[in-house]
Nucleic acid binder design. Structure first.
Lengths: 115, 115
DNA sequence: CGCATGGTTAGCGCAAGGGCTAACTATTTC
DNA sequence: GAAATAGTTAGCCCTTGCGCTAACCATGCG
């Protein structure tokens, strides 16, 4: 029961870590901004950046690994699309922090914030 | 004029990078959660973590470097306190993304998101 | 004064991040 | 079928992140 909660927390924390790591690079943030306009192929996405394709692909893989984008290959072209849920996860953590500033009363919340 | 905007964008992007890097570590997130309850000394903050002090201090320095906390030493004890503005910066970027999903019309916004 | 407490500095080790080139595979397209 | 296009794989380099120990101030207290 408590073990279940702890395991949930561990996964949640790992997911948060992945998301924030992904967001911590300007190239990846720019890619996300671009994908906000709609699904795009890798080569198309890479165009604005002065970077070799393999390097760029690492960013794509990292974005996909964190769940921030979804990717599908049809024919020889891989198309990337935004995945919106992880953004909500990040926003939720931030607003949980904010919530913590105001009231320091809820014990479960304290446990969550502290883990 | 345009150069000014570009320079602003560069700093903004660097700040965002710093913030997300800082948030991408579980220990640092936990510290922030703790600091939500009020200012705390380094040793006090370090207690829950099975980590040597110098290692822990690196996290503190990184949090301070990103602007997420403020730090002041009086006597032999260094006290850390939350700095709330950077949280707003992160939230602003996330909500700008969200805004980008809905309408792709504002040209300045596109420029901002893409940089 | 002398010792405990709270940080700090220096240096070391390992893993991961972010970039590259070279070479290769798998589709289209002409 | 040959050549261009779109990714992929492998391997290398260098920097940074995150942990450690050992040794060193600096302050507070008995």
């Amino acid at each position: 029961m408590r073990a279940v909660l702890l395991s949930f927390m561990a996964q949640y924390s790992a997911q948060l870590t992945g998301i924030f790591v992904a967001l911590s690079d300007p190239t990846r943030r720019a890619v996300l901004g671009q994908l906000g306009k709609g699904p795009t192929s890798v080569t198309e996405l890479a165009k604005p950046f002065d970077m070799a394709l393999p390097s760029f692909m690492k960013h794509i893989r990292m974005l996909e690994g964190s769940g921030l984008i979804r990717t599908r290959k049809s024919g020889r072209v891989r198309t990337c699309a935004l995945e919106k849920k992880p953004f909500a996860v990040a926003e939720a953590w931030l607003s949980a922090q904010r919530a913590g500033w105001e009231q320091h009363t809820d014990r479960l919340e304290q446990f969550v914030l502290a883990t």
